[in-house]
């Protein structure tokens, strides 16, 4: 693997992508080496996320069961649809835990000046910093999440969505989740540049993740619009689940990824501006 990203425009996007994948492969290798040393911790982290998933599944089983099975709905989402929605939430969480675990340390690292070693490396600071902590246990939970999603989809095929439709909609849904998770995470953390080590990033992350873990139809329309169009938390589970379940009209389904693209561009610009404020030890 080359030690620096291709600088010339001739190398193009493909060269940069290959370089990025090479870096990520090294992070994956280091992640496995590190975690093989902490075997109990591996099991604990898998169990921890399974507890999180179980609490969600049980909560909605209890809530839907209150009115007699198959009678109640949540903002128009039936129990079977909600299971698919939870599948998307678990996949989003699995992706986040697998690749983006370093974000929990961003405020503290910013305060302590720990970004120095990242900034002098030849490549995107955001990518090199936030993707550095690959987690095999997160990957295990991602597989559990995908397993649950498959189980939930069995409950809605073929009544609600055709198996053939899933062939294209499911990969698109997972891609949207991955894209949204990365740029939403970045947007939560940029606040820390201005409010150093305040935990505001964590609070915003917790607040919006919590909102995104339930269908947007349960919120007042103003909050729903905010979560769709301003801070597109909808990309985390609502849009992917709606896409797979055929709940979206074609125009919206085609246009929404462009909104996510625009959001990513804005967040990256703000991140770069924030990075200019970085002065090694800031706290």
């Amino acid at each position: 693997m080359s030690t620096s990203p291709p600088q010339s425009s001739g190398a193009g996007l493909l060269g940069r992508l290959r370089w990025g994948l090479g870096v990520e492969r090294q992070y994956v290798r280091i992640g496995f080496v590190r975690k093989s040393q902490f075997r109990v911790e591996f099991v604990n982290q898998v169990l921890m996320d399974l507890c999180f998933y179980a609490s969600f599944i049980l909560t909605f089983d209890i809530l839907y069961g209150l009115g007699g099975e198959g009678r109640l709905n949540l903002g128009g989402w039936t129990h079977e649809e909600m299971r698919v929605y939870l599948g998307m939430v678990f996949v989003a969480d699995g992706l986040f835990m697998t690749f983006l675990g370093q974000q929990w340390h961003f405020g503290q690292d910013l305060k302590n000046g720990n970004l120095d070693s990242i900034r002098v490396r030849p490549g995107s600071t955001a990518f090199l910093y936030f993707f550095q902590r690959f987690s095999p246990e997160g990957l295990t939970n991602l597989l559990f999440g995908l397993g649950w999603l498959a189980y939930a989809l069995v409950g809605v095929v073929p009544e609600q969505t055709a198996a053939l439709t899933l062939l294209w909609s499911l990969p698109c849904a997972v891609a949207v989740i991955a894209w949204s998770q990365v740029f939403l995470m970045l947007s939560y953390n940029v606040v820390e540049f201005w409010l150093l080590n305040s935990d505001v990033g964590h609070l915003v992350s917790m607040l919006l993740s919590n909102f995104g873990e339930r269908p947007l139809e349960v919120y007042p329309s103003a909050i729903g619009r905010l979560l769709k169009f301003v801070l597109p938390v909808a990309g985390m589970a609502w849009f992917p689940a709606s896409l797979v379940l055929g709940r979206l009209d074609a125009g919206f389904a085609l246009a929404y990824p462009f909104l996510l693209l625009g959001f990513a561009v804005v967040v990256l610009r703000i991140f770069r501006r924030g990075l200019r404020r970085y002065e090694s030890a800031m706290g």
């Binding site: 809530l63 109640l72 949540l74 607040l207 909102f211 339930r214």
Partner: peptide
Amino acid sequence: TVEPLVMLFVYTALYGSAASL
């Protein structure tokens, strides 16, 4: 404060569904 706030909306939707039933 976050979880109770979210659950408030979930319960509002749930009871709305029960009321319409």
